[in-house]
Amino acid sequence: MTDVDGAAQRRSAVRVVPPARPRKLAKVPFVELADGRLQGVVSSGSDIERVYVSSVTSGTHAYHCSTNNNRPCGGLRGTPCKHLHALADEAVLQYGVDRVVRYLRVEADDEVQTGAQLMSRLDARHEPTSAAVVFSRFLRHLAYLELPGGTTPTPELHWFPATGAGR
């Protein structure tokens, strides 16, 4: 037995991760903290068929942005492009600034409240990464919407109560 004796240890139905906060999805349909990166997909402002894949690596803060076909983003000229800024803004909306700061391991004080402030604290440099992994995670994400629903009860979901009333 550990000597940590919190009630949380003995609870079955505890919401460990706060649910994503509501935000508009039109500009940045996909944001996640996964694979050691803040990563996501940003819709192109000019071409409805095109999306950009943007990412910032936790710890090293290496960033990259390219189209889903791996063509580098023209906005990357030694500094993060507008897609990366949009990604940071939406991540802060979705997860709250604390969680993003902790995940990216940014040295931030209380003054960091927005995505722009977060980006300014990054000791960032550009480092190309493949868009394929993130883009396929986005497609997998979208594929959930195509899964059929069901009427067979899933008792396991009692461990996952819906929460957040009146927020």
Binding site: P19, A20, P22, R23, L25, P29, Q94, H141, L142, Y144, L145, L147, G149, G150, T151, T152, P153, T154, L157, A162, G164
Partner: peptide, 18 residues
């Protein structure tokens, strides 16, 4: 008795949109 209906979703769909 009880009856359940379910659907797959993603994290950004929450609240009344469910």
């Amino acid at each position: 008795v009880r009856t359940a209906v379910s659907a797959a979703k993603v994290d950004t769909i929450s609240g009344p949109a469910l």
